[in-house]
């Protein structure tokens, strides 16, 4: 197992406030990793640092291959069509890498809305576009910042199905940031818990799901006692 993403002692500060403080995090090939944490813990800051949109104050980030992100809030090009949103996802690939047909095979729901304005879509459709747009970059690792936030359960199930298929079918590594900790821990192999910019816990997702500290803070206080 080789690491596609590895941060060492990663620290990011905003004008005084420390948002990430010595974060060590690894995502291996073919792996699904969850990152959970309360509001303001620093999750989106980590996403921005991994994507190169924020420069770390110290520490290192190593990405082996291509990383693409589904940003928090979906961040559509609202005035543009679905197809143009997808196409721009392949911007870094150059002209030859901007053909969108493969995305409609992967995410057939998008085919019917390809000429619609992205700004006029439902939240679930926009999240699908955001995933498709990220896939256009032909990533080795996909970072999803808040998959389910504000979406109906049915569409979340669909989106989760797509992520799982991409992971098992194409070996796409996934770093999933998710408010719904139970969903994230069910879906992923390993997980990290971020608290106030530090990694408080990490390990196998199944183990963390049973950890009373995780249960108390992130799973609604219920410890699911088995037997």
């Amino acid at each position: 197992m080789t690491a596609v993403v590895e941060t060492r002692d990663l620290t990011v500060r905003y004008a005084g406030a420390t948002a990430l403080d010595g974060v060590d995090l690894t995502v291996h090939d073919h792996e699904m990793v969850a990152l959970i944490g309360a509001n303001g813990a620093g999750k989106s800051t980590l996403v921005k640092a991994l994507s190169g949109l924020l420069r770390p104050d110290s520490g290192t980030i190593t990405v082996d291959g291509r990383l693409a992100q589904v940003p928090e809030g979906r961040e559509m090009f609202g005035d543009l069509t679905v197809d143009d949103n997808l196409r721009l996802g392949g911007w870094r690939n150059g002209r030859g890498g901007r053909d969108t047909t493969a995305i409609y095979d992967l995410l057939p729901d998008l085919a019917g809305i390809r000429t619609r304005r992205a700004g006029a879509l439902s939240g679930g459709q926009q999240q699908m576009v955001a995933i498709g747009r990220a896939l256009m970059a032909r990533p080795d690792v996909l970072v999803v910042d808040e998959l389910s936030l504000g979406l109906a359960p049915l569409i979340v199930t669909t989106l989760v199905g797509h992520l799982r298929a991409l992971n098992t079918g194409r070996g796409l590594a996934v770093l999933l940031i998710e408010q719904n900790a139970r969903l994230a821990l069910d879906l992923c192999d390993r997980a990290y818990v971020l608290e106030a910019g530090r990694i408080a816990l990490h390990g196998r997702a199944a183990d963390l799901a049973r950890d009373p500290r995780v249960a108390a803070a992130y799973l609604g206080g219920h410890i699911e006692v088995t037997r």
């Binding site: 992100q69 940003p71 609202g78 143009d84 911007w91 870094r92």
Partner: peptide, 21 residues
Amino acid sequence: DPGRALSACASNRYAAQVVGI
């Protein structure tokens, strides 16, 4: 594509950065 990229910057500057424009 350059025109779309300009429109993308106009529509959502942050998303433009996310896709590498």
